[in-house]
Design a binder for these strands. Structure first.
Length: 549
RNA sequence: GCGCCAAUAGCUCAGUUGGAUAGAGCAACGGAUUUCUAAUCCGUAGGUCAGGGGUUCGAAUCCCUUUUGGCGUGCCA
């Protein structure tokens, strides 16, 4: 609708002067008296055309008033154009919603651009924690929204199943395994993993293997433990994610990248580009050439690659797979890392503008108002499963989607538990359930939309009804904004507002009035549309739409 | 030191890319249930948009600066 008005204005503007500036906006004002839509076109163009803003606005208004789509066009303030639309346009949109059903709001906005969204990518050394809940809710919602509006998104989880951390992980299992067999460990090493689940894994392995592992060489034993534990953790993570309704198109394994020689490939490309050199027995990447503040080590003096190498190799595969947009969703502690990665991508002569990194800010876990330090090493974690047990999937998803990625977030578990009745997600779901209940009642009263004559839509003529339709029309521009800015939290706000408008409407008007079936039917038509739009929005956030609450 | 992110109501946060009178939820207070489900609605109260300067018709939004907080600045990942 905005674009329609925008185009109408352009046409009208061209008649006045061809040298007009098209960089103006059409917006929905936040004050109702300012009309349904409002444009600053006259303010923007007044200076270049050397006329007074209000005079220019008058000219445009006179021209556009000839169209019958506009009920009125007013000039206000310094020179805003305020449009009021004819109700027929709204009724048309309402019909569109009922016709499109759950496809409403979908579009070709994304032009089938291929987008890879990598998110969570938690270490495979423990259960998913609350940080992953945020990343999961964010990444999956962004994925669903992009898909709905015509992108071709692809979700991926990167598993760091090789390297130093994983070795420490295996050693931690080894220590717990030895304990089971009476080997006394004087002091549990600080850097090892302390969580209780390590003991569980060791015990599980023990029931399978018993003492057999002691007959292996230490190297083989650790390898066996590593593979066993990685596999167990992976299954654990997949099961948590299933509960959270997050699916991945692909799990990319670092180990696999290593086996396939992608690391060497990346290194040789960098060498060919003349961007590597040897110093102090190590191989360096001259990243300063590409805007990094200092050169980085690729191969350590001991011959092992640093974490940077597999990461470059991994991103090389993202480019090789032909994605148009590459989105990495990371924690804030990785931002120092991105300049290095970006430098490498430039060195490989790849288009670094394709790579976007979204940093999800920290979550402070609060207990009695105090911040609790979370660490996998010390074993103090709140897992995704804990959270799902406490508040359920729907509330957890809403809670974590409902804020912009760049905002820090204080999470009070006590409050989250209490929230079960206060959480805004129920407010939205309740609107859906309420509508369902009204529709059920209408059916009993033999009011069905099959017999409805759409001409009667003009019974929907009060301001609240028109406002509801206007709100529903916003869906597609909200989705576009969510996708463009990688900010799915806007959808959470949107559905909350729509639900609120419905609740108010419900309290104010009687929908089923057996004395006036035409009006009742029109209103049933309206709330059916609301139900569809709420359901689409919730579904895009991975939240269920309960028929009854 | 340098770099990145933030600062909006008592609390948790929005604010449609520079628009007109800065909004929700929670908490507080007052009201509405013979109903279409009260997990709801109506009302009251709550603000120097961290401070200062700049850009222009117009700034919470853009630029500069100060302050405060978080993070980064490894031959850890």
């Amino acid at each position: 609708m905005k674009t329609k008005i925008y185009n109408d204005i352009i046409k009208s503007l061209k008649k006045i002067d061809l040298n007009c500036n098209e960089d103006f906006t059409v917006e929905i004002p936040n004050v109702a008296e300012h009309g349904d839509f409002s444009s600053n076109v006259a303010l923007i163009n007044a200076k270049t055309l050397k006329v007074k803003p209000r005079d220019l606005a008058r000219k445009i208004a006179n021209d556009l008033s000839k169209k019958r789509d506009y009920k009125s066009i007013e000039i206000a303030g310094p020179g805003f154009l305020n449009f009021k639309l004819a109700n027929s346009l709204y009724y048309k949109e309402l019909k569109k919603i009922l016709k499109a059903q759950y496809n409403y709001g979908s579009s070709n906005y994304g032009h089938r651009k291929k987008v890879i969204i990598e998110f969570i990518s938690a270490n495979p050394t423990g259960p998913l924690n609350i940080v992953s809940v945020r990343a999961g809710a964010y990444g999956d919602t962004l994925f669903r929204i992009m898909k709905h509006i015509g992108f071709e998104p692809f979700s991926e989880f990167y598993i760091n199943d090789a390297g130093n951390q994983v070795d420490i992980f295996a050693e931690s299992i080894e220590i717990r395994y030895r304990e089971l067999h009476g080997h006394c460990v004087e002091e549990f090493p600080f850097e090892a993993y302390h969580g209780e689940y390590i003991k569980d894994l060791a015990a599980e392995l023990n029931t399978i293997e018993g003492t057999k592992l002691f007959h292996m060489t230490e190297e083989d034993r650790l390898e066996r433990m590593k593979n066993f534990a990685l596999d167990a953790i992976h299954k654990m993570q997949v099961s948590s994610l299933n509960r959270f309704d997050v699916q991945f198109d692909n799990w990319m394994s670092e180990k696999k990248l290593r086996l396939e020689g992608i690391l060497e490939e990346a290194l040789s490309y960098l060498a060919e580009a003349g961007c590597t050199y040897e110093k102090d027995d190590a191989v360096f990447f001259s990243s300063t050439k590409f805007g990094d503040e200092k050169d980085r080590v690729l191969i350590k003096a001991d011959g092992n690659p640093t974490y940077l190498v597999p990461d470059i190799a991994y991103h090389l595969t993202k480019y090789n797979r032909g994605f148009d947009i590459i989105i990495d969703v990371l924690g804030p502690d990785h931002h120092g890392h991105v300049s290095k990665l970006r430098a490498a991508i430039k060195a490989l002569e790849l288009d670094d503008s394709k790579l976007e990194v979204v940093f999800l800010q920290h979550i402070n876990l609060l207990e009695d108002g105090e911040v609790v330090k979370m660490s996998k090493r010390t074993g103090k974690i709140v897992t995704m499963d804990d959270l799902l047990n406490e508040v359920g999937k729907d509330a957890a998803r809403y809670f974590f989607i409902n804020r912009k990625p760049s905002a820090h977030l204080d999470f009070d578990l006590e409050l989250a538990k209490k929230k079960s009745s206060e959480n805004p997600v129920f407010y939205c779901q309740y609107a859906y359930a309420r509508i369902n209940s009204i529709l059920k009642k209408a059916k009993k009263a033999k009011l069905t939309l099959k017999k409805f004559d759409e001409k009667n839509l003009n019974k929907l003529d009060n301001i609240d009804e028109i406002n509801l339709i206007k709100k529903m029309m916003d869906l597609s521009s909200v989705l576009n904004l969510c996708a463009d800015n990688r900010e799915p939290h806007r959808l959470a706000g949107y559905v909350h507002e729509l639900a609120g408008m419905f609740h108010k409407y419900y309290a104010k008007y009687k929908i089923i009035d057996e004395e006036n079936t035409d009006l009742s039917m029109a209103r049933l038509y309206l709330i059916s549309a609301i139900q569809i739009v709420i359901s689409i929005s919730l579904d895009l956030m991975g939240i269920s739409s309960p028929k009854k609450m």
